[in-house]
């Protein structure tokens, strides 16, 4: 029961953050691929820097243990990402933003979105045996994190990631990596 209450509360804050970042709007998602609004990238990278630093520090202090790390199987992760990007650019959703957008009461999130995800899940589950075992067997490194895989200091990696993100934010906000959107003038 406690697990369910925690999941519900985490979900509410997650959905709230997605809404406030503007990611429950079609144009916000698609425009990151047009380089005219980089909010998706800024939002994701900020979340990563915060959670990464927090979790590695908490683990260092012995306050948390990591849950099972998402598995690395190079071809599947990359191929999945490649297919995923097509779906994002077509629909302007991710599974999470679609659920949050549905909560806002938008019909084009509630009907084609939620039904599409259910249909996709059914098709995936019914073809799983023919597809997944073969793909995930290629270059499979298991449930690994980069500091362990390459024997690097984890704090140094987190710091490098944070610096890289700050550099990226600077380029987006100050150095013109975000294009002016010509559509706005039409």
């Amino acid at each position: 029961m406690m697990n369910y209450i925690v999941a519900l509360i985490l979900g509410v804050f997650f959905g709230f953050a997605l809404n406030k970042a503007g990611l429950t709007k079609y144009h916000k998602i698609v425009n990151v691929f047009r380089f005219t609004d980089m909010a998706v990238l800024q939002f994701m990278m900020t979340a990563l820097v915060v959670s990464m630093s927090g979790l590695y520090i908490l683990r260092g202090l012995g306050l948390v243990t990591f849950p099972v790390v998402p598995a690395t199987y190079i071809v599947g992760n990359l191929l999945g990402g490649l297919i995923f990007g097509v779906g994002m650019a077509l629909s302007g959703y991710c599974p999470g933003t679609c659920a949050a957008g549905a909560g806002e009461g938008k019909l084009d999130y509630i009907v084609p979105g939620l039904l599409g995800f259910l249909a996709g899940a059914a098709i995936y589950g019914l073809t799983y045996q023919q597809v997944f075992p073969a793909i995930s067997a290629i270059a499979n490194y298991g449930n690994v994190v980069m500091p362990d895989l390459w024997n690097l200091n984890p704090y140094l990696m987190v710091l490098l990631f944070a610096l890289m993100s700050l550099f990226l934010f600077y380029m987006i906000d100050r150095a013109g990596w975000q294009r002016k959107d010509m559509l706005k003038d039409e």
């Binding site: 998402p70 650019a89 959703y93 995936y124």
Partner: peptide
Amino acid sequence: GAIVLEYAAGIAGGCTSGLAISGGMLLA
């Protein structure tokens, strides 16, 4: 698009939240 997204998330082992954010924060 939604069908494509869900199928792709299956192959990849997660979506933007379950893989990109959750895996990324652990440095997977």
